[in-house]
Design a protein around this nucleic acid. Sequence first.
DNA 1: TTTCCTTCTTAACATATGTGAACGATTTTC
DNA 2: GAAAATCGTTCACATATGTTAAGAAGGAAA
Lengths: 187, 187
Amino acid sequence: MSIMETYFKEKFPFSDDEIQLIFSYFKKVEIKKGAYFLEAGQYCKKIAFIEEGAVVFYQLIDGDEKSCGFTFENDWITQYKSLIQNITSELYIKALETTTLMEISLENMLELIAVLPKAIMLRTELAEEYFISSAQRASDLANLEAEEHYYKLIKDNPNLIHRVPQYYLASYLGIKPQSLSRIRAKS
Amino acid sequence: MSIMETYFKEKFPFSDDEIQLIFSYFKKVEIKKGAYFLEAGQYCKKIAFIEEGAVVFYQLIDGDEKSCGFTFENDWITQYKSLIQNITSELYIKALETTTLMEISLENMLELIAVLPKAIMLRTELAEEYFISSAQRASDLANLEAEEHYYKLIKDNPNLIHRVPQYYLASYLGIKPQSLSRIRAKS
DNA sequence: TTTCCTTCTTAACATATGTGAACGATTTTC
DNA sequence: GAAAATCGTTCACATATGTTAAGAAGGAAA
């Protein structure tokens, strides 16, 4: 059983036949470390499930890469704002490791939902997950000091320590890499 | 024509009959300045459109009211996370002014969608609006200095200057009221 | 291995924000 | 209207983060 299949059976109440139908709309894609799932300026017209690997979301501001999120295996990626508003993305989505994806185009997703209305769950799941995590990040950025924020972050997602460069972590926390180094040096 | 009616006709492709049907599921509610639309610990089971007035979303942290958003007339309010996950809210939603709402219970919303499937647009609209605004807030908190953030905020929504107490604005910006005073004193 | 390049760390100093307290100004309550 | 409470401002000092620069550590490529 594939990784995505296991995920689906745990998460959603689809029958085996429905899962097979759903899977027929996806295709497997591999992106090498450092390659892009999406680049700024492009229209995002796809959604993908990470079977293996990790990606970073970032924005290019004054020449610096400012991260706004990370996603690892067993989770979804897309640039939701670009996808739903049909506008160009301001974000890059880049592979931090060689990453295996199950990808579906927006077009195919809509077709799938037309054939199997229950599949709208996937889209809803995605929207809600994105909303809740970004609301949490905003709250943490406003209410926690960088140090608390850092320890909360790596406690909630230990992957971040070893699988994400520190300069991305720093920008995600809203601080400079030197400041993150200083925080880490304390302990 | 009511305020909500004008909003609907501009925003959504519903017919007059559909709008009448939709409106029959809403009821008009007034909350006085300082009263709550929702309090922390409660389950949020409703969605409302503000016809007139203003509300603040805030969290109580160490005795301080930390704002995470403001909504004015012609916009929607709900505690989306509590609503969709059926958990108690961590947020208070309080009227900053005497506020007139058009309210619909979640139950009625689901019934409405069952009767008029197109009405799912309302829910999607809400989710997307919340997601995009909270992603933008997180980005601004991480990437802007307090001063830039403040001027961007009041430029994007001039209502905030005169209709929101400064201590809420300050906590929304992730700073203390004294720091906001200092920033304002510069100009 | 050696070299090169990127990332991480450290340091000194500059700047921004936090803290605690006091004072007026405004609003609310009686 | 008077008293009380709330809110906004200012100040001096403490702390956190930014800036600039240099060097160490680590990984990638020859």
